[in-house]
Amino acid sequence: MGRRVVLGMLGLGAVGVVTGRRLADLESRVLAPIQSRDPTGLTSLLPAGAGFRFYSVTGTVPHRTATGYRLTVRGLVDRPATFTLDDLHRMPQTRLIRDFQCVTGWRVPRVHWAGVALPDLLDAVGVSPRAQAVRFTSFDGSYSESLTLAQGRRRDVLVATTMLDRPVTRDHGGPVRLYVAPMYGYKSLKWLAGIELTSSVQAGYWEHRGYDTDAWVGRSNGQQDAPIT
């Protein structure tokens, strides 16, 4: 009997591995509308659901209040500048409704984002002709990311101040985070503190750990997810 239980579990496990893709898709479709309206947050405890999963590369979640927040923009720019949250709110706002796709497979559909499009911020400081890349640093002290200047000039790259229709919360990388719509989530740096224009792309935190620098959804990291458009 014991052997039958073990073999039965192995068999079911194998069936689950082979058919799991379809089951997981079904589960996401069923759970996504429930989770987005669930005030208790209990459905987020279900595995492989449609919610965000929290990742931090450091031990504690950094904290900046909305009033104490500063974003410095420097490097190969004409006018280095520091922005407060109010400064960012006063600039032209861009709104996007796009999925958030993690390279580990989970995807949150139709997330509402708003903030300053990165090209607008770059125009405000004036980019030097020698600049080829944009580097982002986080006030958690470890996390960094880079984009080429061409990628950074896309209008679907946001310095986001709202996410899910409210100010970006601390767990989601608030008060200000990056959102790089067409790329995997690890490019959307959390707890954004600094933007530096540089002459070349520098590998960031996750790239040093083997992830692709050009992290297009569906076209990088050996993944075949549907692209985010």
């Binding site: 496990g13 799991g20 893709r21 595995p47 497979g105």
Partner: peptide
């Protein structure tokens, strides 16, 4: 990738 997604699903639920 589909096998890895399936493995994730089985691993998550069996957990």
């Amino acid at each position: 990738l589909s096998l890895r997604t399936g493995a994730t699903l089985v691993h998550d639920w069996l957990a």
